[in-house]
C-alpha cells in the first residue's frame, strides 16, 4: 500500500524542530508513511495531550519492515503497516498486545473492521485508513469499457505500451491472480506457471514500473492507463483536472487497510496508547480522512467529512464490480517463486 500525499505535510519536518514545549509529558515516536497525517492533527494531538509527536517516515511496507529488522525495534512506539504486513509483523513477534480496556474508544471501531484476518479482535492494531487499488484510464485516449482487468493484461491497441504498473510486487501479482481467477498464493504449479506466463506475456504492453509517480504519469499523459490507489486517482482528477477514470473490474480488485500497530519494546508505551485512543475519536479521524481522501474504519466519522467526499466515483463501485480482496500472505516457498518471477519480469 503506497501513497504519497503531496500537499501540506511538508510542515511535519519543521514541526519536529519546535515541538519541545510539552517535555513534561514526554513523547511518542511514530514510524509512519510519508505525508500520511495532516499537520493540524499533529498540532491538535500535542495541544490536547501535551505529548510531543516525533515522526519518522518510510515509503513502503517492506522498507519499514527491513528498517525495523535492522535494529529499529525499541526506537519507535507505533508504526502504520498495511493489512498483510500486520500479519507478517505479528508472525515475527514484533507487535505488543493491547490489553482489554486499555483503549477507551475501542468500541468506535466499526464491527466489520474488528475481526480482521490479519489481527482477529484487534489485539495489536487499530484501523487507520482503508481504500482500494485497481487502475485508471485516460478517457481522452480510450473511451471503451474499462471495468475489466483486460485493460492491464490484454489491453486495447490504444493503451498497449502506455501502461504504468506499480513498482510493488504484491499488488501486481495480486491483480494478475485476480485476472486469472486463481488464489493469490496458490502453491499449485499450473497456477504459478500460468501466472508467470501472464506476466511475461503482458510485459510488452507496459511502459514503466513506478509507484511514486503513479498519479503524475497519468496526469501528464505520459501513460494512458496505470495501476493506482483510489484516493490517489481522485486527487489526480479533482486537484489536477486530469480526465482519468478509476476502474472497478468485474473480475475483482484489491482492497487494503492501513493500521496503527503497537510495537514491541515501545519506549513510550503509555503515550502510544494515548495516541491510539486519539485516533479512534471520530472528529480526529474525520480530519485525517478529509486529508487523505481514503476511508475510515471508525463509527461516527461521517459527520465530520467533507460532503463531496462521499459522492466520489472512486469510492462508489458500480453494481457489477467484482469483489474487493485483500492481499494474501504467501508461505516462504511460494513467495520465493514469486520473487523469481518478479526479477525475470524486470530483467
Amino acid at each position: 500500500m503506497h501513497r504519497q500525499l503531496r500537499t501540506s505535510a511538508i510542515a511535519l519536518c519543521t514541526g519536529l524542530g519546535f515541538a519541545t514545549a510539552a517535555v513534561a509529558e514526554g513523547e511518542v515516536v511514530v514510524y509512519h508513511w510519508f505525508e500520511y497525517i495532516p499537520q493540524e492533527l499533529v498540532d491538535k494531538f500535542e495541544a490536547e495531550t501535551g505529548i510531543t509527536m516525533v515522526i519518522d517516515t518510510y515509503d513502503s511496507n517492506e522498507a519499514m519492515l527491513a528498517s525495523l529488522r535492522a535494529g529499529g525495534m525499541g526506537t519507535y512506539d507505533v508504526a502504520v503497516p498495511g493489512d498483510y504486513m500486520v500479519q507478517i509483523m505479528r508472525d515475527n513477534d514484533m507487535l505488543d498486545t493491547i490489553e482489554e480496556g486499555e483503549l477507551s474508544n475501542h468500541g468506535n471501531i466499526l464491527p466489520e473492521w474488528l475481526d480482521v484476518d490479519y489481527d482477529p479482535g484487534r489485539r495489536h492494531s487499530i484501523p487507520y485508513q482503508w481504500g482500494s487499488t485497481s487502475f485508471s484510464v485516460n478517457r481522452d485516449v480510450y473511451d471503451g469499457a474499462i471495468n475489466t482487468t483486460d485493460i492491464i493484461f490484454n489491453p486495447p491497441e490504444e493503451l498497449s505500451g502506455r501502461i504504468n504498473m506499480l513498482a510493488s510486487q504484491g499488488e501486481v501479482m495480486a491483480l494478475a491472480a485476480i485476472h486469472l481467477g486463481i488464489p493469490m498464493c496458490s502453491p499449485d504449479r499450473d497456477d504459478m506457471q500460468a501466472l508467470n506466463d501472464l506476466l511475461m506475456g503482458s510485459r510488452e504492453h507496459w511502459l514503466s514500473f513506478n509507484s511514486d509517480t503513479a498519479r503524475e504519469i497519468l496526469v501528464s499523459g505520459d501513460a494512458a492507463a496505470g495501476m493506482i490507489y483510489d484516493g490517489f486517482s481522485a486527487r489526480g482528477r479533482i486537484e489536477e483536472g486530469a480526465n482519468i477514470e478509476y476502474a472497478f473490474p468485474t473480475q475483482g480488485y484489491i482492497a487494503w487497510m492501513d493500521n496503527m500497530v503497537l510495537l514491541n519494546d515501545a519506549p513510550n508505551r503509555e503515550n502510544a496508547i494515548i495516541l491510539m485512543d486519539f485516533l479512534l475519536e471520530p472528529e480526529n479521524v474525520g480530519m485525517l480522512t478529509n486529508f487523505t481522501q481514503y476511508s475510515a474504519g471508525i463509527a461516527g466519522v461521517d459527520d465530520y467529512l467533507d460532503p463531496e467526499l462521499a459522492a466520489q466515483p472512486e469510492r462508489n463501485p458500480p453494481e457489477d464490480a467484482g469483489p474487493a480482496v485483500f492481499i494474501d500472505v504467501c508461505d516462504q516457498q511460494t513467495q520465493e517463486i514469486h520473487d523469481r518471477m518478479w526479477t525475470a519480469l524486470r530483467r
Binding site: A167, W206, L207, S208, F209, N210, T213, R346, R347
Partner: peptide, 10 residues
C-alpha cells in the same frame, strides 16, 4: 533508470 527509464528493466 528509475525516473527517466521507467524502471521497466532493472
Amino acid at each position: 533508470p528509475d525516473l527517466l527509464g521507467g524502471a521497466r528493466n532493472f
